[in-house]
């Protein structure tokens, strides 16, 4: 499977799940995932978003109006995997470029090693935050 997509801030706090077949016995499932951009570079927008969060969460102490200590803002998308039988784990981290693998003896950090069953697999992208006007992602999964 090789899919890509473009999302904006309306995707914040949603999940995108791809369900796809793995029809041949695979000793190794590999996943490549990336998204771009990672960082909001527009300081005017960043200031606005940060100040509104500071107000919302009670960090608007007039003595310490230092929005810059929270800059820059980042997009965050995390990836989790469910095989046809069980949850295989999740990679909750900031990296916008990730490589994962699952095999009987090893798995990349965040995932459980183990036998890879044939059937319908799921990869879920959890979109914690999109702060840039657009965010493009690409997801590739293959077995071998």
């Amino acid at each position: 499977m090789n899919v890509s997509g473009r999302i904006d801030s309306s995707a914040t706090q949603t999940h995108i799940t791809y369900t796809f077949p793995i029809l041949e016995q695979s000793s190794m499932i590999r996943i490549e995932f990336n998204y771009t951009p990672k960082t909001l570079t527009d300081t005017h927008q960043a200031k606005e978003m940060i100040e509104s969060a500071m107000l919302k969460y009670g960090y608007n102490d007039p003595q310490v109006q230092d929005w810059q200590k929270y800059a820059p803002l980042h997009n965050l998308i995390t990836l989790s995997i469910d095989d046809p039988q069980t949850h295989r784990g999740q990679a909750h981290r900031q990296d916008p470029q990730q490589t994962h693998f699952l095999s009987a003896d090893h798995a990349s950090p965040g995932f459980w090693k183990g036998f890879n069953p044939v059937g319908q697999w799921k990869v879920t992208l959890s979109i914690h935050s999109v702060v840039t006007p657009e965010c493009d992602y690409q997801l590739e999964v293959w077995g071998n």
């Binding site: 969060a53 969460y57 009670g58 914690h128 935050s129």
Partner: peptide, 13 residues
């Protein structure tokens, strides 16, 4: 519970 939340620290509050 009171760490500053999204989008600074997502879901933290």
């Amino acid at each position: 519970p009171f760490r500053i939340g999204s989008p600074i620290c997502t879901g933290c509050y």
